[in-house]
Design a protein around this nucleic acid. Structure first.
Length: 459
RNA sequence: GUCCCCGUCGUCCAGCGGUCUAGGAUACCGGGCUUUCAAUCCGGAAACGGGGGUUCGAAUCCCCCCGGGGACACCA
């Protein structure tokens, strides 16, 4: 068994791997076939993404097939979750099927196999007879030629005693009937493929092309699964990850285009192809996802970001809808631009949005470190000047503060942190003048007065 | 255990026989800038699993070993 190498020269890569068969590139039909036994995790999400990208890149058809043949484990909620996850990722499907709708067809083909002598009944179930001798080779577009001796295989059930089909069988019948040209799926299925090829042969059908993509591993290097915690695609939405970031991250897990790291979905569609996919499993690195999310937060249109932020602020209970509306979309967009510079997720941004919303700011005891008795009068005086401020731009605030530091007798190095804490309750945050400008003169003045009072009451 | 797949910095990738004193990204460490944090800039540490071949030449090809993962259901 020799793994095929990517050829150099002008031979089209896929053609070479396909052993000379010519895949008709304008009629690509691929499918994502999840089983609705739980939420869609990122491994499944990546498989869906690769299929979708392959279909869109080749102007083909992306099919969604719900593999719910195991009625005891499949649920309607899981199906809804899968739809919701794909929609969130922005992976639209052209056709959708449900395997349970095709049981009659599966039984019909099973019957055909039995009539041909390729299957036999035992214990009420229909078993496929695997040849004793010989071997079957999978010509995988990614793994190369993989040969398995028939002696390694056992006869397997294709129709359960209750008449329902089992995975390997339903999969073959459906892929054939749906005209699937490329089966792009996780590497855990590579071992199933010889059985499926045997089925195609017994039925006299031409098998599709196969491409088994490498697995995604958890931090402990085992196949990513539910027990790794936040593996659900929708969990990333809850964590404040942008779909663009997760798509970008997932695409880079096992696929690359030179040294480029950031890809928009449009770029991925234009660049993605099977030759760029590698064959080794990848560990899911949360830190890098967070970095990408930050990149995408910074590339997102401020108004769209404002809408996403508004929603988070409400769902997280940072403020109510009324307060958010009072701020207005424009001001919120300006706040979002400041917030996204320091926050890596929408959640972090929302949690730090309090200063931009109306109302007083609670001052923690540590505020006393910069809100000293010495700056109290200056803050009170500054509040009056802010009220009379003609130019509420960052430059206007900068002139005001620097002028104030000068003639109020408090050095800017002490005044700036004091104003920051008075307005935000925190010693860290965006550039002070930008911050004040976004918060606005009225609210700034109110909080400056409140801070002056707070200092006085503490003495 | 058997079979299958994989093996470059901690992690994700580049590398397709010479251009590799191995490149990018992230994470980490140090410094500049800043009222602060972040961003940004500069610098640093960090890898070809091991052993045999083939070749003038190997991270790149072959073999063995080791290591990791996956599959071995009337689950998918």
């Amino acid at each position: 068994m020799v793994a095929a190498r990517r050829p150099s020269g002008k031979v089209p890569w896929a053609l070479h791997r396909a052993g000379g068969r010519i895949p008709t590139m304008d009629s690509v039909r691929v499918r994502f076939a999840p089983s609705p036994t739980g939420y869609l995790h990122v491994g499944g999400g990546r498989t869906a993404l690769f299929n979708w990208l392959y279909a869109r890149h080749h102007r083909g058809t992306f099919i969604l097939r719900i593999e719910d043949t195991d009625r005891t484990r499949s649920t309607e909620e899981a199906i809804e979750q899968i739809f919701a996850s794909l929609r969130w990722l922005g992976l639209d499907w052209d056709e959708v099927y449900r395997q349970t709708d095709r049981f009659d067809r599966h039984r019909e083909v099973g019957e055909d196999l039995r009539n041909r002598g390729a299957a036999y009944e035992e214990g009420g179930a229909l078993w496929f007879r695997v040849p004793r001798e010989g071997a079957t080779t999978v010509r995988d577009l990614l793994a190369g030629d993989v040969t398995v001796q028939h002696s390694e295989l056992k006869d397997f059930v294709i129709l359960r005693s209750d008449g329902t089909p089992v995975y390997n069988f339903a999969c073959v019948v459906d892929d054939h009937d749906m005209g699937i040209t490329h089966v792009i799926r996780g590497a855990e299925h590579l071992n199933n493929t010889p059985k499926q090829i045997l089925l195609y042969q017994a039925l006299g059908w031409e098998p599709p092309l196969f491409a088994h993509v490498p697995l995604i591993l958890g931090p402990d290097r085992s196949k990513l699964s539910k027990r790794h915690g936040a593996g659900s695609v929708l969990d990333y939405d809850r964590r404040g990850i942008l779909p663009e970031a997760l798509v970008n991250f997932l695409a880079r897990l096992g696929w690359s285009h030179g040294d480029q790291e950031v890809f928009s979905k449009e770029e991925l569609v234009a660049l993605f192809d099977l030759p760029g996919v590698n064959t080794s499993a990848a560990v899911f690195d949360d830190a890098k996802l967070l970095w990408l999310n930050h990149e995408w937060l910074r590339r997102t249109d401020p108004h769209r970001l404002a809408d996403l932020l508004a929603e988070r602020i409400v769902t997280l209970g940072v403020a109510d809808r009324h307060a958010v509306e009072a701020v207005g979309r424009e001001r919120l967009a300006r706040a979002a631009v400041l917030l996204r510079e320091r926050g890596k997720t929408l959640v972090e941004m929302a949690e730090r949005a309090r200063p931009y919303l109306p109302g007083p700011i609670p001052l923690p005891p540590e505020a006393a470190e910069v809100l000293t008795p010495a700056v109290g009068p200056a803050l009170a005086a500054l509040a009056e000047r802010v009220t009379a401020l003609g130019d509420p731009s960052p430059a206007g605030f900068e002139a005001l503060l620097k002028g104030g530091a000068e003639d109020l007798g408090v050095p800017i190095k002490a005044l700036a942190p004091a104003v920051r804490v008075a307005v935000t309750g925190s010693r860290v945050g965006p550039g002070l003048y930008d911050l004040l400008s976004v918060v606005g003169p009225e609210v700034v003045a109110d909080r400056l007065r409140a801070a002056a009072r707070w200092i006085k009451e503490r003495r």
